[in-house]
């Protein structure tokens, strides 16, 4: 009976798939730990940068001299969206959810008569978006994550490109889309405005120093702000990259965990079918022998 042989090879192939997915799960788990550590150790810098900028923004206030990166260009005609996805697939809905959110946003913006430009970080996002919005993609990056995780220089590269675009007046508002890492099994698509910079309200220093500290600035507030804002763009992008990479590994880990479990279930079911049909065959043969003996 060819059926038995078919079943056997089917079981063997599912078994090897299971081995692959469980190996991928292990790899993702160890990468996740590293990515999580990296994301955590990058947080102090971003936090302090945030408070410092908030303080400076409060000091400069709505003054005329505020840099464009903070005050904006006064228009909102051209939107630049930066999309962070993975370079590789097999990570559940990770890439799809970002792409979906982006698509909705781009369609809404276009319906409102705005111009949209896209920067894709990660190969998958660019691949998925190029069919519908191929002409809008102004830059794409891939291979962000090296052997040792993500380097800040990668983020600076992207930041430089964005600042160059801004200096040339090629966009008015810049928003980043990335998967924020919540836990290994849950990531949320996050939309964050990068330019113009939205200052987070800073809690006053009163609790920290006892006096409402009046800061001295060296050189002027404006000069420091002009220096810090572009740097902040880099830091924000770096943060998004780290979050996105931690999310990617988390998503891949749970996707591969599911796949491994499904493969296990499938093997169980196939084995039952296999055993049953083998038993049926044996019974059949026995009946044939017995009825042959009876006929004599």
């Amino acid at each position: 009976m060819a059926n038995l042989k078919e079943l056997r090879s089917r079981i063997a192939s599912v078994k090897s798939t299971k081995k692959i997915t469980s190996a991928m799960k292990m790899v993702a788990a160890s990468k996740l730990r590293r990515a999580q550590d990296a994301a955590e150790s990058a947080r102090p810098y971003a936090d302090r940068m945030g408070t410092m900028l908030g303080r400076l923004a409060a000091a400069v206030g709505g003054a005329q001299g505020a840099p464009k990166l903070m005050a904006g260009t006064g228009k909102d005609d051209v939107h630049l969206l930066i999309i962070f996805t993975a370079d590789r697939g097999l990570c559940g809905g990770f890439n799809a959810s970002i792409v979906k959110a982006t698509r909705i946003k781009v369609r809404a913006l276009k319906a409102a008569g705005k111009t949209v430009k896209l920067v894709c970080v990660g190969r998958k996002g660019a691949d998925a978006l190029k069919r519908e919005f191929g002409d809008d993609i102004v830059a794409r990056y891939s291979g962000i994550e090296g052997k040792k995780g993500i380097d800040f220089s990668e983020a600076s590269k992207v930041a430089e490109k964005i600042l160059a675009l801004f200096d040339n007046g090629e966009f008015d508002i810049c928003t980043v889309f990335y998967n924020k890492f919540v836990s290994a099994i849950s990531q949320t698509v996050t939309e964050q405005q990068l330019v113009p910079f939205a200052a987070a309200s800073v809690e006053t220093d009163a609790t920290e120093t006892g006096t409402s500290a009046i800061y001295e600035y060296e050189p002027s507030e404006e000069a420091i702000l002009a220096d810090l804002l572009p740097r902040n763009v880099g830091v924000q992008i770096f943060g998004a990259m780290l979050e996105s990479s931690a999310s990617e590994h988390g998503a891949r880990m749970s996707a591969m965990d599911n796949a491994t479990r499904n493969a296990g279930d499938m093997i169980d079911n196939l084995s039952i079918v296999y055993n049953r049909s083998r038993q049926a065959q044996i019974t059949n043969e026995l009946i044939e022998i017995i009825s042959g003996a009876e006929a004599l």
């Binding site: 410092m52 001295e216 600035y217 060296e218 050189p219």
Partner: peptide
């Protein structure tokens, strides 16, 4: 704008 030393109880400031 030049080197500066920071001792305890330095006046608050921000510098590049």
């Amino acid at each position: 704008d030049g080197n500066f030393g920071v001792l305890p109880r330095h006046a608050p400031m921000i510098s590049t």
